[in-house]
């Protein structure tokens, strides 16, 4: 398998980027695929709190941190790198990746690239699609409608959305269902991956005392999310590239 970089981002904040990244780490782990994650919420690192063993907090605007991510792609034993981009930095990061020749490596087939673009309900999200389109064309571009915050996407005119969305060749739409807020909060308080919460374990691997009901809600929801990743053939997209 050749190295793969998956970016999870949005220019708008509060749309659930870290939540999606957490589900991706769980999903890939469930498929026995090792992942390393970069948390660009510098210096706080929300992702690192849930997945400390695989996550490194980075400042994506710093050249040394960009080197830490990109210069190790070919040498790292862990082939999939997930980058949780801080709000407001998606376009800037993509431009920086262009400047350092990352997309040239993608075009030449050295690296697989995928982008999970988390969309909010506002019209600004549609404009974001236009901003990232130049970087997404012909690649694995996933427009993620995240309903976790009970977003209704009411501000969107479907025709306008289609006009933006269809411009991006090969783009795929993903729908992430809502998780009951009590369940979400409980996982948040536990500070463990969703999969660990379902297994009723603490971060240290001891038996936790999490609610059976809330664990059930998380299990059902995570299965639905996994089904979405299966539907788009995420794993095949990462491994098929090997044959390119």
């Amino acid at each position: 398998m050749k190295p793969a970089v998956l970016i999870v981002g949005a220019d708008k904040g509060g749309v659930g980027k870290t939540t999606i990244t957490r589900t991706l780490i769980d999903y890939l782990a469930s498929k026995n695929t090792l992942v390393r994650a970069f948390d660009a919420e510098f210096p706080r690192g929300a992702l690192k709190r849930f997945h400390p063993n695989v996550t490194e907090v980075i400042d994506i605007t710093s050249v040394s941190d960009q080197m830490k991510m990109l210069d190790t792609l070919l040498t790292s034993e862990v082939k999939v790198s997930l980058i949780d981009i801080r709000a407001g930095l998606l376009s800037r990061t993509l431009k920086a990746f262009t400047d350092v020749g990352f997309f040239d490596a993608v075009r030449e087939g050295e690296v697989t690239f995928g982008m999970f673009h988390i969309l909010g309900p506002s019209v600004a999200s549609l404009e974001e699609i236009a901003d990232v389109t130049p970087y997404a064309a012909g690649k694995n571009y996933f427009a993620v409608k995240n309903f976790i915050n009970e977003t209704s996407f009411f501000e969107w005119d479907p025709a306008v959305y289609d006009s933006y969305f269809k411009k991006t060749k090969g783009s795929v739409e993903l729908n992430i269902p809502k998780l009951h807020e009590m369940a979400y909060e409980q996982v948040d308080l536990s500070g463990v991956p969703f999969s660990t919460f379902i297994k009723n374990r603490t971060a240290q691997g001891h038996i936790a005392n999490s609610s059976l009901v809330l664990r059930g809600y998380v299990r059902t929801w995570l299965n639905l999310v996994y089904q979405e990743y299966d539907r788009i053939g995420l794993l095949d997209r990462l491994t098929d590239s090997e044959a390119d």
Binding site: H180, A183, L212, V213, L214
Partner: peptide, 11 residues
């Protein structure tokens, strides 16, 4: 949901 928890979490 809190009532569901009252019922099933008694286990």
């Amino acid at each position: 949901v809190p009532d569901q928890m009252k019922l099933f979490d008694t286990l």
